[in-house]
Design a protein around this nucleic acid. Structure first.
Lengths: 121, 121
DNA sequence: TAAACATATCGACGTGTGTCGATGCTACCA
DNA sequence: TGGTAGCATCGACACACGTCGATATGTTTA
């Protein structure tokens, strides 16, 4: 069977419109509410790490990537890779699917687009 | 006189094309080089704070905003506001202009657009 | 069932960061 | 010239975060 590993916690609001997935209006348009700022900061913090940015760029460049294919290019230990994939998944930026022994990761373009939109896109 | 307070350090590359101000190609397109990932992470880290996001949203919503007009809405001490404006300015996201006693801040839309572009825009 | 493999979790360590009081510096005003 | 206002810097503190070895969990294979 395939089990889905996605974001959890406050980020997992099922009724959120895909356009306003992160903020109701862009940062450049109107003063942000405190709750929106906290939520957007949480998601941006998930991206604000060189290892995670490279991890995302590798995952987003392929349909899906196995965890074991990340350890080499990123030159980090297995627990560290697992930690970073979890952070990105909790932020909803990537999603992991467990098939057999392996976990396959793929990017969530909609969420990334929502982040861009929150930044004034 | 008016003195300009902008970003400094590696971010201040005068010959950088405005389109590729942050990365040569979007995170979603191709694996990121280590240097590009480090630089983009530094800029995203400047945004990944709720106080700074609200600060930016206030500054970006007006042509320019005085430092003294930030202390109230953000409910932080004067040294803390000064710290956050410096972080955003070092990342090139806002620019400060000192006129008389006051420092006036305004957003840098080009840089914010470059960040969006680095995120796949 | 036992062994091997992929991944997640735990615990610990060093480092980075947000915060603020105290202080310093510059510009304006009486 | 003395006083005040706006802002930057310094020093210190608490907390969060990236990292990895050790260990646990679950899956495949012999």
């Amino acid at each position: 069977m395939a089990e889905s590993l996605t974001m959890k916690g406050a980020a997992n609001s099922p009724d959120a419109d895909i356009g306003n997935l992160v903020c109701s209006s862009p940062v450049t348009t109107a003063p942000l509410a405190e709750s929106e700022a906290t939520e957007l900061a949480r998601i941006l913090a998930a991206l604000a790490d060189p290892v995670r940015l490279r991890l995302l760029s590798i995952v987003a460049s392929s349909p899906e990537v196995c965890s074991c294919a990340l350890e080499g290019p990123l030159a980090k230990s297995q627990p560290t890779i697992s930690h970073h994939t979890k952070v990105l998944a909790d932020a909803g930026i990537i999603t992991g699917e467990k098939r057999g022994k392996w976990t396959w990761w793929h990017a969530n373009p909609d969420r990334i687009a929502a982040i861009r939109k929150a930044l004034g896109g």
